[in-house]
Design a protein around this nucleic acid. Sequence first.
RNA 1: GGCCCGGUGGUGUAGUGGCCUAACAUAUCUCCCUGUCACGGAGAAGACCGAGGGUUCGAAUCCCUUCCGGGUCGCCA
Length: 600
Amino acid sequence: MFKDTNCGELRKEHAGREVRLAGWVNRRRDHGSLIFIDLRDRSGIAQVVFNPQTAPQAAKMAENLRGEWVVGVRGNVVERPAGTENSKIPSGDIEVQAVELEVFNESKPPPFYVNDDSEVDEALRLRYRPIYLRRQRIQNNLVLRHKIIQQMRRYLDTRGFLEIETPILGKSTPEGARDYLVPSRLYPGSFYALPQSPQQMKQLLMVSGYEKYYQIARCFRDEDLRADRQPEFTQLDLEMSFVEQEDILALMEPLYTSIVEEVTPSKHVTKPFPRLTYKEAMEKYGSDKPDLRFGLELTDLEPAVRGTQFQVFRQALTEKGVVKGITAPGCAGYSRKQLDDLTQMAKDKGARGLITIALEPGASTVDSLSMEHVRSVAARYFTIDEVKGMAHAVGAKPSDLLLIVAGAHQMVNTVLGALRLEIGKRLHLQDKDHMKFAFVTDFPLLEWNAEEKRWNSAHHPFTMPHPEDIQYLESDPARVRAWSYDLVCNGIEMFSGSIRIHRRELQERIFQVLGYTPDETKEKFGHLLEAFEYGAPPHGGIGAGIDRLAMIMADEDNLREVIAFPKTQSATDLLFGAPAPVGQQQLQQVHIKVSPPEQK
RNA sequence: GGCCCGGUGGUGUAGUGGCCUAACAUAUCUCCCUGUCACGGAGAAGACCGAGGGUUCGAAUCCCUUCCGGGUCGCCA
């Protein structure tokens, strides 16, 4: 070993000891003859002093050191002279007086600063990833990620779970995201697909009697990227036999609370996790993954405006739509521009428009409001009682702003949900140190795909319908609730899971509702259906995004900061240059002929 | 595929029609400095403004095309 001590672990107790350190030159302070080096390794930083009087040769060499050179130092740990301690670093009470210096490797000036957290162009972060990964911040993030995964393994191991690996080379299945394909050399024209998740594999493991399975599984989806979506990502994939929904939730809640408590104790977790049904989530928050760190709930305003003369509301109500609103506290003073921005946002999400009503602070209470305190483009259509009624309903006070959307039920919820988040953001109601988890249950089993004119699985086709609703599978598919559940946190989906179907007949019925012919079903899912004929236990599980969990625990707003080697938004790897063309010979081996894309 | 934002010395920014022969900070190089810790001081070098085309007497700045990065809608069972 070139080192016997980690830089960041040196403390007062080590004074008097001779140590060998090795690491990178984080900073150099050259005082002419005295030279200070901040030496950095994974553990942190230690100050090394080169004194020409005590170690002339090392001091001479030290004059040439520059940032990011890799060096080894032999020296003596001493307490710093009184008054020169540095309280900013843990090893700041001591320093190492160098006796001997060895340069393992020099470094060109790095393409960006390693020793601070300054902004770096994303392309540079990716192009020079090995250097970017030296930064303290991302090292912390990767350590945090490691700890999350360790806690998962620890927790599940003590509860009798087995970690079992499943293949990466699998078979393409319909439904879901676009697959990444891998051509077969031995079978011309045939392809493997990389798993979108090990869903069917883990269900088969249940059939095999493993009862409690998990895996830290890499998943692949060939869809467009987002700040919180990479083409390959990591899931905690988990499945259990002989369980009901309640058993899974009871297992998962302590897992997540223990992760946060162990890994980021400074963050606050609300226990127990609140639960809401999909319906409640949509009605109150306009989202199936609500951010519960703040209120501003959506409220039905129909009772307050039932008799209104305002045509927009009347029409919405006659057409079986709804009128709902939220309060933006203290926003009555919003400018025309700010209101226009909100209106535009509402329109982008599908609303015909947005009704804003500013309650100016002139009145002391809602009841003492008069029309002169009400600022709204629709003011002249409302009676003061209607305004008061709406204000009471959404809990608004003078100086607040009401945002109201009328129209089709679902659209109104979605639009107000987006506005709610926007107001929450503007008013800084999203506390990063609060991990507000919640379970969302009772999702619909199916969703109508208007484009393809057929029913899609809301979760996936293996989800167990609510037993009470099975009778409506064919007659009223939209009415069927699923035995599925999500965990959300701060407006982000943390995991998604369900109780699965374990009987062939029911699974076949579902495929039929999804529009598959018996032949297609047999061809695409025969292996699973067959397995169900040999004693499949009731089972269920989850798939949990590990990258996203790490992201919010690390206070990052982009997945790339918690992944060592991420891809760009256009799914390229700027470090390796992937994807890249391959030679003719390689293509021939896998029987691929490339046809160039059509010219525009 | 649509929409939006960005690309200026190594890095991060400023400059949005003439004052730009492009500014500032930092990094780099040279010299000085024995208690600094984002050390300090003096000096030097370094970009023709992502690329191509156009408008104009004049373009980093306006327009078009294109490349790259980012955000977002669609998409993501």
